[in-house]
Design a protein around this nucleic acid. Sequence first.
DNA 1: TTTGACAATAAGTAATAACTTATATAAGTT
DNA 2: AACTTATATAAGTTATTACTTATTGTCAAA
Lengths: 115, 115
Amino acid sequence: MEIGLNLDAAFSALSDPTRRAILARLAEGEATVMELAAPFEMTQPAISQHLKVLEDAGLVVRRIEGTKRPRRLAKAGVEAMDQWLAMLRKALEKNYDRLDQVLASMEQQKKGEQQ
Amino acid sequence: MEIGLNLDAAFSALSDPTRRAILARLAEGEATVMELAAPFEMTQPAISQHLKVLEDAGLVVRRIEGTKRPRRLAKAGVEAMDQWLAMLRKALEKNYDRLDQVLASMEQQKKGEQQ
DNA sequence: TTTGACAATAAGTAATAACTTATATAAGTT
DNA sequence: AACTTATATAAGTTATTACTTATTGTCAAA
């Protein structure tokens, strides 16, 4: 399964704005390396290297079509990150409720002091 | 808003397993630096440095209590990442539908060839 | 069958990251 | 006041990252 290692790679992949932009482009559908490279001021090898990072992280897959290698989004990696983040989100909701209670009881106490 | 820069920092912060473990611990509630450091074989300065990374990324906030500096989860950063990932998730759902159609039409074609 | 387009890989470089040890600071304790 | 606890900061080291240019491999088309 290697979920732990993949999370390292997946989050690391998303930490780069170029790679996030590539993923955003792929969210609109399949694209070749040259198409993906076009919007950037980087060389083609640079984009190929970014794509390798995204593939190794399980966020992108490739297809073969003549000399082209069109990429598209891969489900696995995205889902893994999503699930991990869900844990934090849940905790935040729970803690927020707890904070509400604390604040409420502090209000109560304040009123008591004033009277 | 600085959302772009923060996403860099936020995703980068999550790419380290120590920092993910710290966040997982904080998901259960506030903790001091020493408490957070305990499970690891790292020195205290190392943990303080990880915490700085998490704070700079907007994933953690600190409170002052005597000489202690208890940390807890921060909402902003987590939500930012979550929203960005939601975009990918949506795209995957949409593309999956599309793929279903493609596969279906390929099956059709195959049947035609065989007959 | 040469030429051009598409893409991957290799080697080099400069910046950054993740640690370490050593030291500093500030509050709590005796 | 001296000692301890809790934490931060600084400086140094090594590994990794994000690029670059140069080169190679493949297919397609003239």
